[in-house]
Design a protein around this nucleic acid. Structure first.
Lengths: 306, 306
DNA sequence: GCCGACTCGAAAATATCTTTCAGAAGTGAC
DNA sequence: GTCACTTCTGAAAGATATTTTCGAGTCGGC
């Protein structure tokens, strides 16, 4: 058994250098071998899908010749050449990725839509993570962990983010409420006092329905946090801690509500994990408890399913 | 002789999607198969250099198990898995950073938490995008665009995703409802008929409260769609189209509910954009209309804030 | 025109992959 | 706890693919 991966002097053939090798060695090849080499160089992906016999037929040669060519290119046999070919194909494939920067067009095929959306959301995550002020985040976490109760405000798409945060906090035993009704939000905000936490989620930072309850909470002495894409927007006036989310560029087919959500959720997750860490002794049992409670609702079948 | 390279229908899994598939399918694998899958995922390059027998020995299993695993991952046999592995290895080699694969610990500083969470969610996005069946997605979009009405089911964290989708669809003039109350969901599902669409969102695919309404809708002749992380779970029995989301590995401080959400939302966004494309003439005015309507609610201050 | 070296492919030999089948291990019912 | 049942697993047989062997064909030199 060797199946070595020695890389010393002449070593194992480089994956990318294959095209070069073909050109270099072509002159010293016999006619049949050249045909094989050419096929391999011109369509790595296609050839990777072929067996020895297939490639032999394609090039009008024999299996023996294919193997000989593989040897000449520096591989122990055709099998290894084929693997290298697959690698090369994959590289070429992924190489032509950067067409993603374009905006989503009305006539984009569905596969492009998926790729572009995924790419954009990844970008948003990276940007948000990079731009997040960990000091502010830490302060917000500290406040949350110690809070008597927490209110979260958000309307529209941000309302769902608010609910997501609330669900999570409840899950680790905190007292949290999400409000998307502006009136109720204000009504409840009046109840807050020092030691409580109020969180406003709004992408624009200018959503009156969310600013108002935060203002009330702020004036009541609660610790206030704003999760917004605009660090200079009105909502920050009443926020003790501002957590900034980044946004991908928007467009007609990709409204702000869509791209902002991704960043907001990352922030929310960070808050959650941060709090869970600080209150680990309480959080850990609570987490497993809620997990177990749910297990019953998951189908008659056991965990592994079928 | 076929050795096909058809890519149309279910197609061969792309090398990039492999890591995603492993994570997605791992839970439904048997112990031995999981060992193989793990070996494959953790060292693609190394495994690509091994024969069936070699990999079987390495993982302490048999050749049969290795082949079975390859099949489960969507390849005709080990040979093809091996080729994909070689491709993946090449991509990793040339491509971007391997990663901070560590799990989140209780004593991680907050900055690490942010970085790890962001990385994991990016990973989930990439995996989901890579593993998403665009044919199924396209079919779902077509059904949605033509639907008389659409019902979306989801409870818990997935309920928020269901609401998110509903909000978006409403915004472009479709008739959509989200149901998180299981009773109401079933009650409403009875109203559905051919030409309507029912969508179930559930990570585990085993959530009875969500399966039940989908079953009813299915039996009523509606077009049914499942958004799930388990392509072999009970929910898919009643789904005309299955959209699979990938999940990052989970842990105590990062429950499944958290990581699944990211992938689900990507799928939802894709559905939305897809439908918006198909119904562009109606959707475009509806989008700007709802945008304008919102502008009024953005603070007493002008649109641009501050 | 004959010789020798080289090229090439058919078919045998080997390695690798796939399938089958029966025992092992786990699961649920009673 | 025990039994019946299903599911999982690996050994070995069977099928493919790859490598080697070997002799026929080709070309250039003398």
């Amino acid at each position: 058994m060797k199946e070595t991966f020695a890389q010393g002097g002449g070593g194992l053939p480089a994956p990318a250098a294959l095209a070069a090798k073909v050109r270099t060695l072509a002159p010293s090849m016999t006619r049949s071998m050249q045909r094989v080499a050419e096929a391999v160089a011109s369509d790595p992906a296609g050839c990777a899908a072929l067996t020895v016999t297939g490639l032999a037929e394609l090039t009008g040669t024999s299996e023996a010749t294919v193997v000989r060519t593989a040897r000449l290119l520096g591989y122990p046999g055709y099998r290894d050449l084929r693997l290298a070919l697959a690698g090369l194909a994959a590289q070429q494939q992924s190489g032509r990725a950067p067409a993603l920067t374009t905006d989503i067009a009305v006539d984009d095929p569905i596969a492009d839509v998926v790729a572009k959306l995924a790419y954009d959301e990844q970008q948003t995550l990276a940007d948000t993570a990079a731009g997040l002020d960990t000091v502010q985040l830490g302060a917000a976490v500290t406040a949350l962990a110690a809070a008597r109760r927490t209110d979260v405000y958000g309307v529209g798409a941000s309302g769902l983010v608010a609910q997501d945060l609330t669900q999570k906090l409840l899950r680790i035993g905190l007292v949290a409420h999400a409000h998307s009704d502006p009136h109720l939000a204000v009504t409840n905000a009046v109840q807050l006092r020092a030691g409580d936490v109020a969180i406003a989620v709004t992408h624009s930072g200018s959503t009156g329905d969310v600013i108002e309850p935060l203002r009330v909470a702020f004036e009541r002495g609660a610790t206030t946090v704003a999760v917004t894409g605009r660090p200079d927007s009105p909502v920050t006036q009443y926020a003790d801690h501002v957590l900034t989310t980044s946004t991908a560029r928007e467009s007609e087919l990709r409204p702000a509500a869509m791209s902002s959500r991704t960043g907001q959720l990352l922030v929310v997750d960070c808050l959650f994990v941060g709090v869970a860490q600080r209150t680990y002794d309480k959080a850990a049992p609570a987490l497993s408890a809620s997990y177990e409670a749910l297990a019953h609702r998951h189908g008659p079948r056991g965990g592994t399913s079928r």
